[in-house]
Amino acid sequence: MGLHHEEEQHPELLHHFAEPEQQRNAASLGMWVFLGTEIMFFGGMFCAYLLYRHWYFGDFGAASKSIDATLGAANTAVLICSSLTVVLAVWAAQTARRALLLAMLCVTMLFGLAFLGIKGYEYYQKFEEHHVPGPSFSFENVPVPGHPGEYANPRHAQIYFSLYFLMTGIHALHMIVGLGIFSWLLLMAWGGRFTPAYHTPVEIGGLYWHFVDIIWIFLFPLLYLIDRHP
């Protein structure tokens, strides 16, 4: 397998592991288990979302319609592209293409920043429209989609916007953490720390990034596309 040659001169092997393979497996398993806990962390919010969407479907539809779905779709595309660049970065690390690795890490971070920029613009719009929950919240006379003559209950719409800001906010927080991880990966890659034999940090950092992408893949239809049709 070739592993036994490498392990003697392997500087990254911690003392309590028998071989690099064991260390690599432990690290990726640890990240997967952590992502499992993340599912449950977001799960609490999904639970609240499910209940109130079930109770206040019309109000949620009206509130969802006030958000720019094109921006949401654009952000989905941005994240999908960033996932591609992450997987290319992992491939570059596996196949010892240092320049490609550095480039892909940089592009991933640029996509991440673009996502946050679009997100920030969306928040700015909501702020301007007084759709941020709190004392200045206002959602008067907004028709319920599919029910002519009915208007959304502002309180119920406020619950939608609370969940919208909480879910996208905590997701954005995860993106910022991801950017931090990738900055660190970039520094390590710049220093030439990754080899085909040792690139576990790129792999598990990538796992984290993909997971944050997956969360967004669900947030997009749940928050932006509730009841869009005219």
Partner: peptide
Amino acid sequence: QLLGTPVIAITIVL
């Protein structure tokens, strides 16, 4: 610990 604790964490946030 892994599957329960995150739920109380998000509950505290809420």
